[in-house]
């Protein structure tokens, strides 16, 4: 994984540069002007390994775009050991619940290694929705595409596992 953590100990956010958000999947549908508008609301944060970005059950108020490093999405389970749902790769977003209205994060997110993320507060999305709905719609479309990709992949994995178990006569 790429490591660009100049100051991992510095906790406050840094201004976001245009080239940093160029390869974010969720912003694919945004025009350059839209990206520029969004950039004013974004800031970059660095998280150390094992540092949580958000925890399950917290109010969802920020959307995160991973710039470098890797993140894990985990959900609490009854066994006490969290279920790992997904590894977030650079370019992907997490915490989309922040754009779903008043909601709580449905899973915890923590950095697996020193990671840099761009943070978009929910307020920014609401302001865009009211003032520049085209940008908000493009952002939502981008996030929806990413979610659909995740969903397809999950289905594929599940279907492959079912096939495998059927062939092994575990499921008839």
């Amino acid at each position: 994984m790429e490591r660009t953590n100049n100051k991992p100990e510095k906790e406050a956010g840094q201004p976001c540069r245009p080239e940093e958000i160029e390869y974010l999947h969720a912003l694919n549908r945004l025009t350059p002007a839209g990206r520029k508008r969004l950039l004013t609301w974004l800031h970059v944060r660095t998280y150390a390994a094992d540092e949580p970005l958000f925890r399950q059950g917290e109010p969802a108020l920020c959307l995160f775009f991973l710039l470098s490093g890797s993140l894990a999405l985990e959900a609490d389970s009854r066994t006490g050991r969290p279920d790992r749902l997904k590894i977030v790769a650079p370019g992907q977003a997490c915490g989309s619940a922040a754009l779903a209205g008043d909601a709580f994060y449905g899973e915890s997110c923590l950095a697996l290694e020193p990671s840099r993320v761009a943070v978009l507060p929910q307020t920014a999305f609401h302001q865009l929705l009211a003032g520049q709905p085209a940008i908000a719609a493009a952002l939502l479309q981008g996030l929806l595409e990413e979610t659909l990709d995740d969903w397809r992949q999950a289905l594929r994995t599940y279907s492959g596992l079912t096939d495998h178990l059927t062939r092994a006569n575990i499921i008839v």
């Binding site: 959900a75 008043d102 909601a103 449905g106």
Partner: peptide, 8 residues
């Protein structure tokens, strides 16, 4: 998981 529960 509750992701769409309204915040009071």
């Amino acid at each position: 998981m509750k992701t769409a529960m309204p915040i009071p």
